[in-house]
């Protein structure tokens, strides 16, 4: 096989692996939007938060992984509850723009607190998976990418089953459809909001941990990965869980390919911009996304 094709496959594989993480993070975003029509403008900070807490528990407090990871997720759940109870619940009934702006404000606070607590230096992140590449045919694949992909797929499958089959998942879908009717059937709408924020903080934290482990370090640029949630949800449709799972991978591959082929021509930076070019194009030709409902508003 020619080097050209190996190079292409490598880009695609890495893109799929990273894109799957985007899907995971976007899942949290979509859940919040579906349940409460709140657009979370701080997805990056949720990722940062998870990554930093994981770093602090594993490397700073030197806890065993089996303790540190669950602990990180518990802290993420607490963050979700704090956001929903403390910040958003008092704003119920306020204009949607106020609610959206407050997510932006809260994200800045999270970033500030992280900076105050642990500073802005790049922190080494433990490699959760071996970095010794193995060969898939002629294509070298790093286990970190493979395992992050597998982990994400298992998580996405689990969440999909939860939404589709469990009573609580069904109640969440019902709330997204019609809050008043869901309430008349005994579903606590505030409870569903809280749950969707908690799921969002948890999947973002997981995303942060996986990305931290893939990159081998944590710093504030991790938040940029969280921002990729926007092109993913615009492509997939703001209200479609299946849509964001597919479009996360598409965005991941696309950005990697444009990075691999166009960066040398334009002298770099295309990789970072490409997803947002897609965002703009999609908004122009298909504003409700690939899988979204047509009546979704542009946000």
């Amino acid at each position: 096989m020619s080097d050209q094709i190996v190079f292409l496959l490598q880009l695609v594989i890495t893109g799929v692996a990273v894109g799957a993480v985007y899907s995971l993070m976007a899942l949290g975003f979509v859940l919040i939007y579906k349940a409460s029509t709140v657009v979370n403008f701080g997805p990056g900070e949720l990722v940062l938060f998870g990554a930093y807490v994981a770093w602090a528990t594993i490397l700073n407090m030197k806890l065993h992984l089996a303790v540190a990871l669950p602990l990180t997720l518990v802290v993420a759940i607490l963050l979700g509850l704090v956001i929903e109870r403390g910040v958003l619940r008092p704003l119920i009934g306020e204009p949607i723009i106020s609610v959206i702006m407050v997510t932006f404000g809260f994200a800045s606070v999270v970033r500030g607190v992280l900076n105050m607590t642990w500073g802005s230096d790049t922190r080494p992140f433990p490699a959760l998976f071996s970095s010794q590449p193995f060969h898939l045919g002629p294509v070298p694949v790093s286990p970190v990418h493979l395992w992050s992909f597998v982990t994400v797929m298992v998580l996405l499958a689990a969440f999909s089953l939860f939404f589709k089959y469990s009573l609580i998942g069904t109640a969440m879908r019902a709330t997204a459809d019609n809050q008043q009717v869901a309430q008349s059937l005994g579903v606590s709408v505030k409870g569903v909001f809280a749950l969707s924020w908690c799921i969002a903080t948890v999947v973002s934290a997981l995303g942060g941990i996986i990305l931290g482990s893939v990159r081998g370090g944590v710093d504030f640029s991790l938040a940029d990965y969280g921002l990729k949630v926007f092109p993913v949800v615009i492509l997939g449709g703001l209200d479609s869980v299946a849509g964001v799972i597919v479009s996360g991978v598409i965005i991941g591959v696309l950005e990697n390919l444009s990075g691999g082929y166009l960066d040398p021509i334009f002298g770099g930076g295309v990789k970072e911009v490409a997803p947002f070019v897609v965002l703009v194009l999609i908004l122009m030709i298909r504003p409700y996304g690939l899988f979204g409902r047509k009546d979704v508003e542009r946000v």
């Binding site: 609580i168 069904t170 879908r173 869901a182 579903v187």
Partner: peptide
């Protein structure tokens, strides 16, 4: 809930 199956709609009644 128009997009859901009959079974899912009825099942939500069990939520309480």
């Amino acid at each position: 809930f128009r997009g859901m199956s009959v079974l899912d709609n009825v099942k939500i009644g069990r939520h309480v």
